[in-house]
Design a protein around this nucleic acid. Structure first.
Lengths: 142, 142
DNA sequence: CTACTTATTTTGAATGAGTCAAGATAAGAA
DNA sequence: TTCTTATCTTGACTCATTCAAAATAAGTAG
């Protein structure tokens, strides 16, 4: 569902006004999984050079709060975004280059969701980040 | 091992020069688990008002790189530090107030370490962050 | 114990992702 | 077509963190 119509549909269903900047931002996130804000801004500018960075930040924040996109922000890296939401998948991050990839959880649908002692917290999500070295960086060092 | 002698011992064993700022920073992190940098700076200043924030940042970075302290930085929050390292425990974070607590992993010694598809990454750590609402914030909303 | 080398620290400026605020614009309703 | 107000543009600003150069002090050699 990467068509413009499909994207407008998503916005409407989430009760958002369908504006050019929002359509462009959501299209950019869809077309560039795991892109950071600057990349998204650049992508948006290709077709809509006039869209402000602030509109992009606002849109991303709104999308995130409505669950339309997911924000990922590993330690020491800036925020990245993806449209794959609601399936509780996780990520691997390369310690060397920051490269990021999706990982389905191995243990059923809600992995690791049970903390041994939750300290009275109402837990609603378990976020898992795997740290390691990507194939490219492994090759460089050997 | 929160004594000054114990802390100096830790520094020496990690081949670090034993300097006043470093001793003060490590003592502060030990005494204030999960503290952010500003809190650590304040704590250090109580006994050593002259220590610069830069020295604190440098020390924390060095300690982290040597595995003497661990840095935690949940989405939307600034960095926090703790001296409990090497036991691969995880954290719960309150979505409302940012309160943070330790969680031992429920599934043995290296939980979730096996990604279903590692994309060729050499994975060395699985970081888990549980998100939810702390007891205090639950009480406020009910 | 004293001098020396250089890792650390201090000082003060700079960076940069992200936010704030006010006026201008345009999406959707009437 | 007009109107209301959510959204966008513009441009300044925040603040955790980093950079750089000169000053200091930890550990070493004499």
């Amino acid at each position: 569902m990467t068509s413009k119509a499909g994207i407008e549909q998503v916005l409407k269903e989430a009760s958002m006004r369908v504006t050019q900047p929002r359509v462009a931002v959501l299209a950019a996130v869809t077309a560039n999984p795991h892109a950071d804000t600057e990349t998204i801004i650049s992508a948006v500018h290709e077709e809509h050079p006039h869209v402000s960075h602030q509109a992009v930040y606002d849109s991303l924040k709104l999308f995130t709060s409505l669950g339309v996109v997911r924000q990922i922000q590993p330690q020491g890296h800036i925020a990245r975004y993806e449209t794959r939401v609601g399936d509780n998948h996780h990520h691997v991050v390369c310690r060397s280059c920051g490269h990021l990839a999706d990982v389905d959880c191995s243990v059923g649908a809600a992995p690791c969701l049970h903390a041994s002692d939750d300290h009275g917290f109402q837990i609603d999500e378990a976020e898992v980040i795997y740290w390691g070295k990507c194939p490219d960086c492994q090759a460089l060092n050997s």
